[in-house]
């Protein structure tokens, strides 16, 4: 038992050793920390977790969260409790493109259920699942502030609004052919109305 625990720790250490922000990301993190008064660097936690998620494959592993704790000089538990509270942080791996379909009232009355059904059929997966190639995950989410342009879905930083089946076909094809991981922090967001 004890050797097993020891083994896990060694494994984690080895894994952790490899975790580090890119130089560019680290610069952004340092810039963010300067926004707050001396000693209040914990305030940077949410923005830094967004960067972390974008840097390390679209989700937050325990190892990356520990790394964030060390960067911000706070306890790991302070990172875990925050990461598990907010819906935009993924604590399990997701596809490169997380398709978040809004399902609250205004989107619901304008067909969000049909959007989800269509996506499920098209991608051959259920809501909450990821395609075998790791490309897409379908997730239903609560109101994204796009009620006047419903139905809609968000993928990374981009809002895709006034959806039609045709638009869904086009965007799935586009994302598939690009094959890129989509993050909230992407600069090349494109909102399609």
């Amino acid at each position: 038992m004890s050797s097993q625990v020891q083994g896990t720790q060694t494994f984690d250490k080895a894994k952790r050793a490899k975790i580090a922000f890119s130089e560019e990301a680290m610069q952004t993190v340092q810039k963010i920390i300067k926004r707050y008064p001396e000693g209040k660097q914990k305030s940077a936690l949410l923005p830094v977790l967004h960067i972390t998620q974008a840097e390390f494959g679209g989700w937050l592993s325990p190892e990356t969260m520990d790394y964030v704790a060390s960067v911000l000089n706070i306890k790991p538990i302070e990172v875990y409790e925050v990461a598990s509270f907010y819906s935009m942080f993924n604590l399990k791996p997701v596809g490169k493109c997380l398709l978040e379909v809004c399902r609250t009232s205004s989107c619901w009355v304008r067909g969000s259920e049909d959007v989800v059904n269509y996506l499920e059929k098209k991608l051959g997966i259920k809501e909450g699942e990821t395609t075998p190639d790791g490309m897409f995950t379908i997730k239903t989410v609560e109101c994204l502030g796009s009620c006047g342009t419903a139905p809609m879905l968000q993928c990374g930083a981009s809002f895709h609004e006034n959806l039609t089946f045709e638009k869904i076909d086009t965007l799935v094809e586009k994302y598939r052919s690009e094959g890129k991981q989509r993050s909230y922090t992407d600069l090349d967001y494109k909102n399609t109305l």
Binding site: G111, V115, T164, F165
Partner: peptide, 11 residues
């Protein structure tokens, strides 16, 4: 069935 949603989604 919401008349609107089906029509809109089909373009």
């Amino acid at each position: 069935k919401h008349y609107y949603s089906v029509n809109q989604l089909q373009g």
